[in-house]
Each structure stands twice: as C-alpha cells, then as structure tokens.
Amino acid sequence: MNYYGVVMTSTRTDYLWIAAFAVLVAFAIPWFLWGDATVAAGLPVWLWWHVGWMALASVAFYAFTRRAWDRGVDAEVIRRG
C-alpha cells in the first residue's frame, strides 16, 4: 500500500517479479558448474551458460517492461505531484 492508500492491483505479482529478479541475480554465475572445465563447441560450458543467461535476462526484462513497468516505484503518485 502506498501513501495515498491505493492498494496495488496485485501484490502477488509484485512478489513473483521480485523472485524472478532474485533468480536472475543468483544464477548469473553458474555456481553448480564450479570447478567444471568441460568444453563444448569450442568454449567452456560455463561460458555458454553466460550467453544463455544474458539472453534469458533480456527476455525477462523485456517482459517486465511490457507487463509490470511502473510497479513499486510510486509512478502515479509522482506524476500527480
């Protein structure tokens, strides 16, 4: 709930986005591949993970801009002044 007493349409959606961002942060470095030296298609597997993860993050961020932008920053209140 913000200052003007407007309840966000869905707090659960907020939490889902926070969870999604947390997962993006947590596995940006593939901890489960720690010490792994497997090479696939000329590059270490952990580097391929990085390529895929950045692409996934970009898609997730794009989805956020389409469906959840303005959440959590009190945008309406600031615009109203």
Binding site: F21, L24, V25, A28, I29, P30, W46, L47, H50, W53, M54, A57, F61, F64, G72, V73, D74, A75, I78, R79
Partner: peptide, 25 residues
C-alpha cells in the same frame, strides 16, 4: 566475463529501474 554479466547485465539493469527510473520520474 561472469562478473561483468552479474554486475552490468543483471544488477545494474535492476538498479537502472529501481534507482534510474524513479530518479527520472
């Protein structure tokens, strides 16, 4: 490369919204 990915690809992008967008507004 992984440090840069976490740092600029993910964390800074999130700050871009949380700090940047709010500062812009």
């Amino acid at each position: 490369i992984l440090v840069m990915g976490l740092m600029d690809g993910i964390l800074f992008a999130i700050l871009w919204y949380v700090i940047g967008y709010k500062q812009w507004l």
